[in-house]
């Protein structure tokens, strides 16, 4: 039986915005097709994970004050994480994790929280603490050459700069900064984004894009994914795209 191994970073801390749903969606879509999903959790005080031994590394968003505690922990693995990324392991990073993988996060008082420096982008807190990019968001991403609308919810005070390869074009909502035209960061094996929702729950094509990439990489063969019953997801997309885009 073919399988994928997922490393879920800090599920007990980066757990604020329902991002765990992404793991549930991946697991569901793998198992429905007869693949096995192996999910390992890593958190503070656990043994060092072997990053390059995984197919997907996932991390979500958490509470601001708890995020600092784990930044100090994760930075120990900076080099291992870079190696895993260069080896092609897929990184799915949401919100706080997206910021953490950049160069730094500059707080309201100008204090710098160093990032993992896996990527060159950086984030600065919005001077007004109460002014955050909050709301439903729709972006258009390109997945294997197919333009795909991605629906989510953003809630971030941080404004991210220095993005050369965005995840998508903003059709509705803010994006990396207030009123931005682009959202997130994307490479062949990386999606870093502010989209909660959870991201994969209303975007099955995106979930399948990640699954296909990971299976093909691990088994070194072309894999066509069997279509699933996505009736609920399709109805949901129809309803929400109509609501957000047709005004």
């Amino acid at each position: 039986m073919k399988e994928l191994k997922i490393l879920y970073l800090y599920p007990d801390i980066l757990d604020l915005y329902g991002d765990i749903g992404n793991i549930k969606v991946l697991k569901y879509r793998l198992e429905q097709r007869g693949f096995k999903a192996i999910i390992d959790n890593y958190s503070i005080n656990d043994e060092k994970p072997d990053f390059k031994n995984y197919d997907i590394v996932f991390a979500g968003g958490g509470a601001d004050n708890e995020q600092k505690i784990l930044a100090e922990d994760l930075i120990k693995y900076k080099e291992d994480i870079k190696q895993a990324k260069d080896a092609g392991v897929f990184f799915l990073l949401i919100c706080g994790a997206y910021q953490l993988f950049g160069k730094y996060y500059k707080g309201v008082e100008g204090n710098i929280i160093p990032g993992l420096e896996v990527f060159d982008y950086y984030t600065e807190a919005n001077p007004s603490r109460s002014n955050r990019c909050i709301g439903n968001i729709v972006i258009e991403a390109e997945l294997n050459g197919n333009k795909t609308k991605v629906i989510g919810f953003e809630n971030h005070g941080g404004q991210t700069f220095g993005i050369e390869e965005p995840f998508g074009k903003v059709l509705f909502g803010n994006g990396n900064k207030f009123g931005d035209t682009v959202e997130g960061f994307m490479q062949k094996n990386v999606i870093a984004t502010y989209l909660h929702g959870p991201l994969l729950s209303k975007n099955p094509a995106l979930a399948d894009y990640i699954i296909k990439y990971c299976l093909e990489r691990r088994y070194n063969e072309v894999i066509e994914l069997e279509p699933l019953n996505d009736e609920l997801e399709n109805k949901c997309r129809l309803q929400l795209l109509q609501r957000f885009l047709e005004k």
């Binding site: 915005y17 329902g18 909050i134 709301g135 919810f153 809630n155 909660h196 929702g197 959870p198």
Partner: peptide
């Protein structure tokens, strides 16, 4: 609250 992602908790 316009964000419904909490239902995954």
């Amino acid at each position: 609250g316009k964000d419904v992602s909490w239902i995954y908790d």
